[in-house]
Structure formats: structure tokens, C-alpha cells
Amino acid sequence: MTARARLLAVAATVLAGALGILSSTQTWLTVVLADGGEHALPVPGADAIPVLAPLSLAVLALGGALSIVGLVLRYVFGVLTVGIAVVLGYLTAQVAFAPPIAAVAATVTTSTGITGTGAVAALVLRIGTTPWPVATLVGWIVLLAAGLFTLATARRWRGSSRRYQKDAAAPAAPGPAASRPHDAIDSWDDLSRGDDPTAR
């Protein structure tokens, strides 16, 4: 269970981050303007939620690092994962179920040159949604579960670097340095300390 717990947490976190990055490039909304043209402007996820791509990249980084960090950082990363999942989940739910004008404002401004929330709202006839916001929201729910799972199981994970920690903590070979032959590595060490081994 302990080996699979780490794998499940890492895999769920990485997959949620990858979904967020992919989703940021896809069309989340279509906005029709009241300009008589009735043409729909596509709004990608990165425009609907400006923090979507950077936070998704952060989730990917957290997932990758989670596979190698020690106990304390597992808890830190677990808390960060939960926090990011809550923020992105809240923003994504808004876009999915009640798209605010702010979600399409950047696209409308780019297309028309009109700025200001009131002016943009007056120009927008209707806003349609695609399946991407809901699909991404499911990803954030998975991410939230992964963060909570990490916090609940982190203490039971097997340390990935335990072997190296033991090696580093192992005592030095017994006996003074003078009891073994002076080799080339020792000579380099002497030089780095400013001693000239040829002067002996």
C-alpha cells in the first residue's frame, strides 16, 4: 500500500496538471457580440482564466517533485496541491456554470478594441460554453483528492532516498589517514588546501 500510495498521488497530480495545460489551449467559451454580425469568438481556457496555465505548470512541477522529496516537503506539497486545486476549482466552476464577463473580456477587447467591463458587457449578446470547463473541473477534483490523499498517507511512504542517506551517514573508515597510502586523490585534496605534496 505504501509504494502504491506514492504512485497514485504522483500520477493523479501530474495528470491533473497535464490536463490543465492542455485545457488552457482549448476553446472554453464562445462569445457572440451584438454587432449585427452574429459571429462567435472562441475564448481559450488561458483567456478565460489567466492563471490556468501557470498554475497547471506548478501542479506538474509539484507532481514531479513529490516523487523524490522527504516527509516534511510531502506535507508542504500536499497543502500547496490542495490550495491550488481549490483556487482553480472555484475559478473553473464559475466559467463552467455562470461565465462572467471577465472571462471573455480579453478576447472581446482583442477583437474590437473596446475596453472596460461595462462597455464589453454591453457588447456581448450571449456566451456559450464547451465541454472543456467541466472536464477541467473534474481534473481539479481529482487534484484535490490527490492532495488530501498525500496529506493522509505521506508518513507511510517509503523514503526514496533512504539508501543514500544511510550511505552519507555511514562513519568514515576506521584508522587515521596516515595508516593508508597517500594516493593521487589525497594529493589533489592537499593542493586544494594550499599544501604542496611534493615538498614533503
Rank of each mutant, 00 (worst) to 15 (best):
V142M: 03
L137N: 00
F97M: 06
T112M: 12
R162F: 14
A184Q: 09
G36F: 03
R158M: 01
V79N: 11
G113V: 06
T112Y: 14
H39F: 12
T30E: 15
A168G: 08
V124Q: 07
T153E: 01
T13G: 02
T109N: 07
P54K: 01
G64F: 15
L57S: 13
P42I: 01
R126F: 11
S187I: 04
R200V: 01
P131F: 00
V87N: 08
A119Q: 13
D183N: 15
R126K: 07
L52W: 11
D196R: 11
T115K: 12
V134K: 13
V14P: 02
T92N: 02
I141L: 15
G116H: 11
L151Q: 00
A105G: 03
L62T: 13
L71H: 15
F149D: 00
R180Q: 09
L66D: 11
A106P: 09
A103D: 06
A3G: 10
V138S: 14
L144W: 09
A135P: 14
I141R: 10
V95G: 02
A85P: 00
L29S: 07
A98P: 06
G116A: 13
L29G: 09
I127H: 08
Y75M: 08
T13M: 04
A96N: 05
V104S: 04
I21Y: 14
R162A: 15
L88A: 07
V95P: 02
G70S: 06
V51Y: 13
V59K: 12
A96P: 02
A105D: 04
A65P: 09
T136F: 02
W140P: 07
G159L: 10
R180T: 10
L137I: 00
L66P: 09
A61L: 14
A103H: 12
R155N: 08
G118I: 09
G45P: 12
T25R: 05
V124K: 10
L15I: 08
F149E: 03
D189Y: 13
L91Y: 14
A11H: 02
V43I: 01
A46N: 10
P100V: 01
D47C: 02
A173V: 14
V59C: 01
A106R: 15
